[in-house]
Simulated assay, not measured.
Amino acid sequence: MADVALRNITKRFGAVAAVRELSLTVNDGEFLVLLGPSGAGKTTTLRLITGLETPDTGSVMIDGRDVTRDPPGSRDIAFVFQQYSLYPHLTVYDNLAFPLRSPARRVPEPVIRKRVEQTAELLHIASKLNNRATRLSGGEMQRVAIGRALVRDPSIYLMDEPLSSLDAKLRSELRLELKRIQLELGATILYVTHDQVEAMTMASRIGVIKDGELLQCGTPREIYESPSSRYVASRLGTPQINFLPARLLSEVAVPPGTETVGIRTEHLRIGARNGGAMVGRVHRVEHLGEQNHVHLDYKGETLVTLADPHQPLQAGQEVELHLMHPLCFDSAGQRVAAAAH
């Protein structure tokens, strides 16, 4: 494995800047996830690393070597695409072996067999090696697509939303499998997704990207607990973080310059009225088994919080609200540091 560094990369397509002055390092053995919506520049970033696109400015470094102008074939990169891209007329074995039979590599057949069988065991598809790709389920096809990259043992794996076309149950299973494999192999992976659950559960670090700009990069816990901006705060958390205008919270001490207060659902507690200053009204309750999502009206704003499923609540009921660990943002949406005590 190797580390990969992007240094002040910019890539434009006509008048559109797909990537803007992006600097990022993926450390050796790290699972780094780029998180952002469609059009944020995630796939373009992968294509710049692999050499399918050339940056207008900036450089791409792999293991300390400048590969910015090198052809894709010389970069020792494996790419897992969103679609499976399997050869339907070939067996699982031959699909996995295909990258190793390239004239550029000339791997001996005994070595190919060993690598294919080891990879199939790792992905739990050893019993499917003689099946044609058309006889596989969606989850099995995605395992083969990932396996075709794993047999290569490249410097870095680039993965472009490889689980997005699977159903929720399979996505959950393969998230665990992919993280397990990465840890067992010590693989370096740069993974892009718009799914915050994938980012939170798999990443060593998360880079939040918007309009081609990397806004913040840190561990999942750092991004969640200490977001640099209102936008970053909104990318993580289910239900989504609540935002309230600071003017509605005169009873809450906030640092100067605070325009908006962000409140994570687990940091908004509700209870029976007992003389507290913040009073909201229950709008509706979503019963989700192990917890309830409670939708509240507070001074014309909507809030969502979590509640014990056995807590008696009903629409129209007035409740006291208690805030903990509020996040403060200025008029531009940037984080305002809490005042030192």
Rank of each mutant, 00 (worst) to 15 (best):
M1S: 12
M1Q: 10
D3C: 06
T10P: 09
A17D: 12
R20C: 04
L24N: 04
G29C: 11
F31P: 03
S38Q: 02
T45S: 12
G58Y: 02
V60T: 11
M61S: 06
D63W: 03
D66G: 07
R69C: 04
P71D: 04
D76C: 13
I77R: 08
A78R: 08
F81Y: 14
Q83H: 15
Q83R: 12
L90G: 05
P99I: 07
A104S: 14
P108L: 05
T119W: 03
A133F: 00
R143E: 05
V151R: 05
D153Y: 01
I156F: 12
I156W: 05
M159N: 05
E161W: 01
D167I: 05
L174A: 00
R175C: 03
I181H: 00
Q182T: 12
L183P: 00
L183H: 09
L183S: 13
T193D: 06
V197G: 09
T201F: 09
L215A: 13
C217M: 09
E222F: 11
I223N: 03
E225K: 08
P227Y: 11
R230C: 02
Y231D: 08
G237V: 13
F243L: 09
S250E: 15
P255N: 02
G257M: 10
A272L: 10
G276V: 01
V282L: 11
L288R: 12
G289Y: 04
G289N: 11
G289E: 05
Q291L: 15
Y298E: 09
L303I: 09
T305F: 03
D308H: 15
H322G: 03
A339H: 13
